[in-house]
Amino acid sequence: MEKIAVRNSGYQISRGRISRVTLLTETERLFTIVLQNNETLDHDPGQFVEVSRFGVGEVPISICSSPTRRDAFELCIRAAGRVTAALHRLKPGDEVGIRGPFGVGFPMTPLAASDVLLIAGGLGIAPLRSLVHYIIDNRRDFGKVDILLGCRDPQSMLFSAELEFWRQRIDINFLCSVDSAAAEWEGNIGLITALIPGVNLDPFKTIAITCGPSVMYRFVIAELLKKGIPPAHIYLSLERHMKCGLGKCGHCQIENLYCCQDGPVFSYPQIKNIRGALE
């Protein structure tokens, strides 16, 4: 057997150097990464990359920074297992392998000029943060912007300093709710779905995007439909086991759709009748 080099292999990585590691919570860290060799990551909010360390393995992670900030990009990583725990051990100056960006991100073209309603649950704030930063950097292009965030408790809230900044801006309506909290918590307590009825919106001008654990989706969608938002104006991001990111390995398949290439962001009508998409 002769080994020959493959140029432009779909599996080859770009080298990314970690320039900063920020502790967000006990289990989540924010990594700022600069691609080497003058490469840039030209992504859409909602897309993901495959991040790896040789000898450890590769995992799909949403890009949580905006493409408008071009020198570096950010990944918010939860230590969930083998690879992610190993990534948590890395320090500034260490390198990671990057493949991508992959998949279909948020619908950036129809979003411009629309009112935007973003609904994030838990770690779902990571991909949505990319969009929020993009909106902030291009605020004039968008209509009214509402952001609803739900999480388990105040301790597990990601990006809390940034959220404060969003809350204070006059051009964003930011609301947040936790499932449970100690007495000193001043914000809302309860499920995120309870916040939706109170949002003041024009259903035909609004595009709603939701991102979070799959159990949340059915309830969020029901509330959005109650508000009169047309189904085609509702988008969501699905998480599946992923390996290749190239529509080949089969892990991410939902019926005929490959979540890595056809998604991870889908419009509601696209997956409404796909059994196994919304559990």
């Binding site: 002769e2 493959v6 080859q12 990585i13 080298r15 390198e95």
Partner: peptide, 21 residues
């Protein structure tokens, strides 16, 4: 099959490869 050979002595270096015959 091997998709990449890697060498991390100086960062995440790699070479994509295919075995042919």
């Amino acid at each position: 099959e091997s998709l990449l050979q890697y060498d991390t002595t100086q960062g995440e270096k790699m070479q994509a490869e295919v075995a042919i015959e």
